[in-house]
């Protein structure tokens, strides 16, 4: 039985797959880097409330995804976002410091903590 947060990571795979496929089909007329955050917004607005607030990280994986795409463009943001999904609820919990939001413990892991070694932004 995998821990709750690992299930979160694994559950994300098919969701991301569906969303990205949809975005690639629909985003032909629009710059992808602009459109991608809209897809994440769709997830946050319609899927996440049903799926439940299960991400143990702060900012949540969807916000992290959105921010990394906005900061570094679609390709690098996509890679960073998927890397985050793998790390969500994993060893980052013991390596990063915790933050308490609405009485629940989260692990603080912003984009800056993962691009500091190459990005000056």
């Amino acid at each position: 039985m995998l821990p709750r947060y690992n299930r979160c990571s694994i559950a994300w795979g098919p969701i991301v797959f569906i969303l990205i496929s949809a975005s690639l089909v629909c985003a032909q007329e629009k710059a992808q880097s602009n459109y991608f955050p809209d897809v994440i917004h769709f997830y946050q607005e319609y899927i996440s409330p049903v799926d439940g607030d299960r991400c143990s990280m702060y900012p949540s994986c969807s916000i992290y995804f959105k921010k990394s795409v906005k900061k570094h463009g679609l390709l690098t943001g996509w890679i960073m976002g998927l890397d985050r999904l793998v790390r969500c609820g994993g060893d980052e919990v013991k390596n990063s410091f915790p933050v308490w939001i609405d009485g629940r413990k989260h692990t603080y892991d912003p984009v800056e903590n993962n691009d500091f070694w190459w990005s000056d932004k």
Partner: peptide, 14 residues
């Protein structure tokens, strides 16, 4: 394969 390519590259990046 497309999604896997992302996860695989993410694994290297991570």
């Amino acid at each position: 394969s497309f999604v896997e390519a992302g996860f695989y590259t993410g694994n290297i990046y991570g």
